[in-house]
Design a protein around this nucleic acid. Structure first.
Lengths: 233, 233
DNA sequence: GCAATACCGGGTACGACGTACTCGGTTATG
DNA sequence: CATAACCGAGTACGTCGTACCCGGTATTGC
């Protein structure tokens, strides 16, 4: 909403969109911690303080980044099929994919859901998917909130290991080797038989993470469907 | 594991536990951003650099804080009833309560699930709840992961508004007033009919947030129960 | 045409941060 | 009783967000 032309004075050299793009690019590649006003400034070829002509501060940048990614939650060619389950399932999968492409958003997306243009758009679309099922409006809100709470929570833990590697700068092998002594003590203590089973037989019969995501989502949708007004009860 | 007595030299004046307690106290009252090494040092009456005798750095402090809160996820008097649904449901509710008491952990708990003593304990207990249901071990892991993904995701969004208030230092009235102009433009645009309904009829027939949590959790457990081996299918 | 006005880019500087390095004091060991 | 191991903590460096300020530039009103 800011980047309209100024009434007077020189034309702006930069733009909020340009800043947002640079911020997302840096965060995707190097994590949220790599974002600093100085870094963003050099990234777009500006002086540090010039950024403050476009944003009110770093928090504002974060908000712009979130809104830009949330915009991507909705596929550009989305059409409602009329099958609420299929529609919600597809949207949930899309949201997961987008978050995986922008891992830094996982801890932000839950904690900072300020009203913003694309969040409003997203919410409106999601609510439309569960309209006409005989639910009260607040029930509709609850259903949408529940589904995306699951999506967020799942993808966050899905990212946990990868983020730990990025934070520490270790590769997977080094990291696992580092945990070995502690896990050995866990096994040796004899107090955690289930965890021991996890360490010993966890490898075989491996379940793909995408399948695990789908499993939880489908069970959640099962449960919701079973309580829908037309489903009896 | 550190705070054993040193073989030689003077007795340590402080302890990891003391540091952890102070850190949690500060974060509970003022948020994660209030945590700094200098602040923690003055909080326990130490010089800043003395803390590095007990932790390897700030990241280590965060890890200690997380583990201490995770310890609380398990009620001290927990006994398994044999009813997996009731047990999981109770544990989920307990976890929610603990997170609400330590809001700063919400964005950390998902992204940083490093193996730590109390996380291992928690995982072992949760797995024991779903043992003997005819699930393969990896299916058990999936079920547990799913349930707590939901719990984390839900509580995170539950905390979003409260955290926004704390971050900005505004009270609820000021914050809502601040959003009014933007939301008016949303309504005026006419493109988001569902959001308009939310704003107009969202107030009536209000659903308690605890009930919303229970709704999603119960639907998820419904869906899981329906696919259990003994349930046919 | 020309002063006033509103906006631009960005330099300087301050306080807070994490922590590497270092040193003097203290306690158990051989 | 010298030595080794460990303690508390001061100093200092690089990085951070950003308040304040200034000189330049394009538009406005006379």
């Amino acid at each position: 909403m800011r980047p309209e032309q100024p009434a007077r004075g020189p034309r702006p050299t930069f733009s909020r969109a340009q800043l947002t793009e640079a911020a997302i690019r840096v965060a995707d590649a190097e994590g949220l911690a790599a974002i600093s006003m100085r870094r963003l400034a050099t990234e777009i070829g500006a002086g540090t303080m010039s950024l403050y002509r476009y944003v009110s501060g770093k928090d504002d940048v974060i908000e712009l980044m979130i809104d830009a990614v949330v915009a991507d939650y909705l596929p550009p060619d989305l059409v409602l099929s009329g099958d609420w389950r299929a529609d919600l399932r597809a949207l949930a999968g899309r949201v997961r994919e987008v978050i995986l492409r922008h891992p830094w958003i996982a801890p932000l997306s839950g904690t900072r859901q300020q009203a913003s243009p694309n969040r409003v758009r997203m919410l409106d679309t999601a609510l439309r998917m569960v309209d006409g099922l005989g639910l009260s409006f607040n029930e509709m809100l609850t259903v949408i909130g529940t589904v995306f709470a699951y999506v967020n929570g799942f993808v966050e833990s899905e990212l946990a290991e990868a983020e730990a590697l990025r934070r520490t700068g270790l590769d997977l092998m080094e990291w696992m080797t580092l945990q070995v002594p502690y896990l050995q003590s866990v096994v040796a203590s004899g107090r955690y038989p289930m965890v021991v089973r996890m360490l010993t037989e966890g490898g075989q019969d491996y379940v793909d993470v995408g399948d695990r995501f789908a499993y939880g989502l489908d069970r959640l949708l099962d449960g919701i469907a079973a309580r829908l007004p037309q489903a009896g009860d």
